Amino acid sequence: MDISVVIPLYNEAESLPELTDWIRRVMHANNFNYEIILVDDGSTDSSWNIITELKKSHDQISGIKFRRNYGKSAALNVGFAAAQGEVVITMDADLQDSPDEIPELYDRVKNQGADLVSGWKQKRYDPPSKTIPTKLFNAVTRKVSGIHNLHDFNCGLKAYKKDVVKTIEVYGEMHRYIPVIAKWAGFSNIQEQVVQHYPRKYGKTKFGPGRFIKGFLDLMSIVFVGKFGKRPMHFFGPVGVLSFIIGFFITIYLIADKLISIANGTVYRNVTDQPLFYLSLLAIMIGTQLFLTGFIAELVSRNSSERNKYHIERVI
C-alpha cells in the first residue's frame, strides 16, 4: 500500500464527507493505493455515524472509535499502529489542511528520502491570540530541540516514512513534538514543506490557551527522556554532587572561621546564627536528595523491560 492517511477527529461530523471525498479525488488522480483511517476521539456529535456510513460506500475508509476523549496524541498513536502504507500522512479533520498537498509530501518521503516532512502554514487564517503564542512556542522548541529548519512543529499536516510511525510513541500532548521525538529516535532527515492553510469552515477550534502550558511541560519531558532516559544518574548525579560540595565547603569555612576566632580570643557569634549555615545545610540536603533520586532512577531504568530496547535501522 502506498499511503495511509491518518485523521484524528473530535466532533467534526460536518466536514468528514467533504474531506474524505477530497482525499479520494487526489488519490485517484495520482493512482495511489491508499487507506483513510479516521480516529474518533470520543466525539459527542454524529461523527461516528458519518464514519460508519462512509465505510459502507468506500472500502478504503476505516474507523476507530474511543470510548471517551483521550486527546489528539492518543488518536495519532492508535492510528499509527493501524497504518499499513509505506508513507503515512496525517492531517486535521477540520478542512484547514489541503489534501492537494499529499502528492508532493509523498514524493519527498518515498523518492527523496525524507524521514519526516512537516507542513508550514506560512500564511495562517487564525486570530493573533493563537498565532503569536504559536510563534513563541515554535521559537523555543527550535532552540531546545536543535531542529532549526522547522517553522511550525504543531502543523497537523505531516508525512512520515512508515518506519518512523512504527518506532515512535506519542502520548500526553506529545503530538506537538513528533519531529523532536523522531529526531531522538534517530530519524535525522526532517524536512519542511510550505502548505496551504484554509479558514475553518465548520464548527470551532477544540484547543484552548491551556495547551501552551501543557506543551512546554511536555517539551521538557521529551528533552529529558531523550537525553537521559537510559542514564538518569548522568543528569541528577552531577547536579547533586555539585550542590553537596558547595554546601560541604561552606560548612567547613564556617567551622574553620569559628575555630580561628576562638583561638584569637575574638568574640564571635555561633555558627548556627549565620545565614550561610542554613544555606550550606540546604545545599547539602538538596545535593543528597538529587543524588539519591538519580540512584533510584538508575535502578528503575536498569530493571525496566525497555532498558535494552534500541532502534535498529537494518541488519545484514
Rank of each mutant, 00 (worst) to 15 (best):
V241E: 09
N303E: 03
L281Q: 10
K204N: 02
K201I: 12
S261P: 01
T134Q: 12
A297H: 02
E298V: 10
I296H: 10
V271Y: 12
K72C: 15
N149I: 11
E35S: 10
S280D: 07
I50T: 13
G294Y: 07
P17A: 03
G240Q: 00
G226F: 08
Y125V: 11
H148R: 13
G215R: 06
V239G: 04
P232D: 15
P275V: 08
V271F: 09
I286W: 01
E14D: 14
V239P: 02
I23Q: 00
R142S: 12
K143V: 04
Q84T: 11
K162W: 06
H197K: 04
T52S: 15
T141Q: 08
V165R: 00
N149L: 08
N264K: 13
P179H: 03
L105R: 01
F228Q: 06
Y171I: 15
T131Y: 05
L217H: 13
I23C: 06
L16F: 05
A114G: 13
R231K: 09
S43V: 07
F295M: 13
V300N: 13
V117F: 04
T272N: 03
T288Y: 10
W120E: 04
L38C: 03
L150G: 05
D257M: 03
Q289L: 12
A139M: 03
D41C: 05
V88E: 05
E313W: 10
G247S: 07
S305H: 13
P232E: 09
G215I: 03
A81D: 09
I284S: 05
D21S: 09
G237M: 05
N49P: 04
V6H: 01
I255F: 14
G42D: 11
S62T: 14
V195Q: 06
L95A: 09
G208W: 07
K55N: 08
I181P: 04
I260F: 15
I181K: 06
A93C: 04
P199K: 06
N69T: 10
G265R: 10
V39D: 07
S280C: 07
P238V: 02
M233R: 14
S145E: 12
P8A: 07
S304Q: 02
V78F: 13
E35F: 07
G186E: 14
I312T: 14
P133D: 09
G42C: 00
R307W: 09
K123P: 01
G208N: 09
E86F: 02
A139I: 04
G208S: 14
I245P: 05
A256G: 12
E169W: 03
T251S: 15
R25D: 09
L54A: 03
I250T: 11
Q289T: 14
N111H: 15
A82W: 00
V165H: 01
H28S: 03
C155Q: 00
